[in-house]
Amino acid sequence: MERHGTWTVKKGLAEMLKNGVIMDVTTAEQAKVAEAAGAVAVMALERVPADIRKEGGVARMASIQKIREIMEAVSIPVMAKVRIGHIAEARILEAIGVDFVDESEVLTPADDRYHINKHEFKVPFVCGARDLGEALRRIAEGAAMIRTKGEAGTGNVVEAVKHMRQVMDEIRRVKNMPDEELVTYAKEIGAPVELVYEVKKLGRLPVVNFAAGGIATPADAALMMMLGADGVFVGSGIFKSKDPEKMARAIVAAVLYWNDAKMLAKVSEDTGSPMPGKAVEELAVKMQERGW
């Protein structure tokens, strides 16, 4: 008998993406560029985060037609975003056969209190988190993959670093905590105690953890790998750069060579200018604050 949509199958796809780069794309042509450059998956979007930020308004799930075009254009997995708590958008993406759903703070939230119960779906979900408690709450709801949030569309890596350091720091603390302290700690960070026990046992999150939100250069990607990311999402960083093909290839190579400075220097040499960046102090909206 074949069993579909099991936890092993959902989490397993995330395991296959490890040490890879997932790139935001808005057209079939961009998806092909990403695939040729070595992306392990693409995220199909209507607008990249930098444009969502600039244009404002309500950001929703991308049009079905656009997602289908991207799915037809490439052989690698295609992910797409839904608004936080938007069960119907998620059901639609599942129905058209998207490989991974991102319940994302980059879009305007549909529910100001609750996230989707992701256990009820056969398609796997990835969710954003800024700390261990948030990551474990999302896993408790059924997320098969986590990405630290950073601050999308800024080309500024500082928030991505902050969130990855925060999650890793809390994991290290849990690892060294005696069992009798775990229940109180779970209460403090608002996480299910069973998952806190599991983090202690594994010494890491029970699912794959990528970095996201502000990665704009090969060096940024390497930095996130140094801090313990399993891979990286690059949103606006590829197709808002001067030469997307070169930048995409260089970031893929940087994720391979993150601990080899000579090779990093080589891959960083000829990338063209990265996307323009934004300081956190200049931001009117902090997307990272969405999600509960």
Partner: peptide, 30 residues
């Protein structure tokens, strides 16, 4: 490639392997 289809068609199934007494839990992902 992706012979069974997209992720939604990924599955687990018990498979018999020559020379092994008990079946193996096969995880097929895309």
């Amino acid at each position: 490639r992706n012979g069974y289809g997209r992720q939604i068609n990924s599955f687990e199934a018990e498979i018999e392997v020559e020379g092994l007494e008990l079946p193996v839990r096969g995880v097929f992902i895309r």
